[in-house]
Amino acid sequence: MSQLSDKQIQTLKERLNEEQERLSLHFEQNEDENLLSDSLSDSTGELSAADNHPGDVGTETFERGRDLAINENLSSEQDEINQAFKRIDEGTYGTCLECGNDIPFERLEALPFTAYCIEHTPDQHLSNDRPAEEDVITPPPGGAGVNRQHSEGRFDDAGAWDDVENYGTATSPAMNIEPGEDDYKNEG
């Protein structure tokens, strides 16, 4: 049995109801958008992706994936809220499912649907795995980043335009502001 008073349980019940209403409102507002049943062309309103820039299709795909992930996360949260109401009815609310110890009221205020104390929260571990891309990425050049101060006075990408500008530009006389002036014959 939990150490929570009836007043605390009532307060937490109200918070759970508020969260449940917020989630219900989200799904009501988005029920017209059944993202999985529509094809990408139906959801974007385009007849074909062939006439669009690939970046446009990529953006639409990203947005659709993001919306699906948000809905999945909120649906999971809704399930956790329903489970919390079930635990309240059973009288086990506020007790950790893993160790059986009481969950502090402060934690329940922050996450009213949690079923675990901080020590036994699932998926709490952080991964030390690094992205696979890091195995094939070449390190930055010696003059970049932290080492830039050590390479003072040497050529680096930041000074490239200054060096190129000394030799003129590739603009034609037609691009010059002053008529009759030859831009690339500028003695500088």
Rank of each mutant, 00 (worst) to 15 (best):
F27W: 06
F27T: 06
E28P: 02
E28C: 02
Q29M: 10
Q29N: 11
N30A: 07
N30D: 06
N30G: 07
D32W: 15
D32N: 13
E33F: 10
L35A: 03
L36Y: 15
L40H: 01
L40A: 02
L40P: 01
S41W: 11
S41K: 14
S41L: 15
S41E: 15
S41F: 10
D42I: 15
D42V: 14
S43M: 15
S43H: 13
T44Q: 01
L47W: 09
A49P: 06
A50N: 12
A50Y: 11
N52P: 04
H53W: 04
H53Q: 10
P54W: 11
D56T: 15
G58H: 03
T59K: 11
T59V: 12
E60H: 12
E60L: 13
E60Q: 13
E60M: 14
T61S: 06
F62W: 14
F62K: 08
F62C: 07
F62E: 08
E63V: 15
E63R: 14
E63Q: 11
E63A: 10
R64I: 07
G65A: 09
R66D: 08
R66K: 14
D67I: 13
D67V: 15
L68Y: 09
L68H: 08
L68P: 07
A69V: 11
A69C: 03
A69D: 04
I70L: 10
N71M: 11
N71G: 15
N71T: 08
E72R: 14
L74S: 01
L74E: 08
S75V: 01
S75M: 07
E77G: 05
E77C: 08
E77M: 08
D79I: 05
D79Q: 10
E80D: 11
E80K: 12
N82H: 09
N82M: 11
Q83S: 08
A84M: 07
A84V: 05
F85H: 00
K86N: 14
K86G: 05
R87I: 00
D89W: 01
D89H: 08
D89G: 06
E90W: 00
T92C: 01
T92D: 05
T92L: 02
Y93P: 00
Y93S: 02
G94A: 03
G94M: 03
T95F: 01
T95G: 00
C96R: 04
C96P: 01
L97H: 07
L97K: 12
L97Q: 11
L97M: 09
E98S: 12
E98V: 09
C99T: 02
G100Q: 00
D102N: 10
D102H: 09
I103A: 01
P104M: 02
P104N: 04
F105G: 00
E106N: 07
E106I: 09
